[in-house]
Nucleic acid binder design. Sequence first.
RNA 1: GGAAGAGUGGCCGAGUGGUUUAAGGCACCAGUCUUGAAAACUGGCGAGGGGGCAACCCCUCCGUGAGUUCGAAUCUCACCUCUUCCGCCA
Length: 426
Amino acid sequence: MLDPKLLRSDPAAVAANLARRGFKLDVERLSALEESRKKWQMRVDELRNERNLHAKTVGKAKAQGQDIAPLLQQVESLGADLSKVESELAGVQSALDELLLGLPNMLHESVPEGHDESANAEIRRWGEPRKFDFKPRDHVELGEKLGQMDFAAAGKISGARFSVLSGPLARLQRALIQFMLDLHTGEHGYRELYVPYLVNAQSLTGTGQLPKFEADLFAVKGESELYLIPTAEVPVTNLVRDTIVEADKLPLRYVAHTPCFRSEAGSYGKDTRGMIRQHQFEKVELVHLARPQDSYAEHELLTRNAEEVLKRLNLPYRAVALCGGDIGFGSAKTYDLEVWLPGQQAYREISSCSNFEAFQARRMQARWRNPDTGKPEPLHTLNGSGIAAGRALVAVLENYQQADGSISVPEALRGYMGGLESITAA
RNA sequence: GGAAGAGUGGCCGAGUGGUUUAAGGCACCAGUCUUGAAAACUGGCGAGGGGGCAACCCCUCCGUGAGUUCGAAUCUCACCUCUUCCGCCA
């Protein structure tokens, strides 16, 4: 949610910023609703005040043993009047809330201008794409040839966009996850978390998936209204929902491995082959909760920590700053990490690191106590994949493939693979 | 799944229809005292919305939502969460 004070005081500036992402803010509708809200609010306050004053008078009269019947007569119609204006206010308020919850975050000034991913700005590039003396295969061909990646079986069990891994390949994914968790907890100072995979609607509203993106989520059938998490960002960030964090506790840096579930509605025809875009995938997520003045330094740090995973795995990648037209709904600034995939001859997203500033914090009432003002103020939330394990598996397969279709195990993972150096058909 | 109990400010906790303007304590902040600190004492100390040039004033918030009432932290209903006991269970 945007700062309501800014929205009221300078809607034109907000509209200009949101226009950079191609979002048209209806300033007239907004200010009309706001004016109407104010009008009804004042009317409601007035009537309530009247009611309260009257109730006190009645209380006093009764205490003194006076007859209160004439007093009660005086306010006969007040209750009806009040509930009428209260429902007017509630109507305006819910329309306003709906509008506010649908507004994307404002962009940081450093976000590149542009309409789509072609305008994203490359920030840096690391590693040299390997030269193959044979035609590199893609991960599907490699995995199926090894007999350890089965999309047909997954299709039978669940449907499209799922996969079954077996043997060393299944272990390789687990090794990647373990390696990442150990790196972030052991060397980068993160606290590891285990969190629920099913969350309520309030949590998803807090991080911004609801109400606008319900179609991207899986909901479970049953009495309680629960959703499968699309990312660990949801349960982890919501840890600070409705809390006030003491200043000396910040920054908080959390890492969690979870499966992620996405309906991928609207992505029909995109990445239908292989493990790139699945309904279920594994991810190690980094979440930072920071003081506002530190959040951009934290953003750089978080991104570097994610990059370190790729460096240790010796996977060539580049970092890009997403432009206004490509950036996510709640983010003020996002770096994507794109790993080189020889099978596609392209850099593909493997991590997305975003600073949400106070956008999520306002939605979820996550605050810190600012020692300068002594007041609770919204803190800043950040998150990034550190990194997506499913796609990391794809990257390892394609980058570490040998001419005979075997996969050499990256040095960093061998300890997690029982010393295995090469994955061969089994 | 069954039974009983509970949910109050940053934290603990009193409050069972009307001077509640939510007692008291802890923590925190400022001051007095002190070489300094601690202790003691004095004062301050929740969040959000609105009005006013201002001093200041008004509204809302006691798990959530509905209801009863002139008036609800307090009564009623539903739901959520927690605790204890029983049952079942990885």
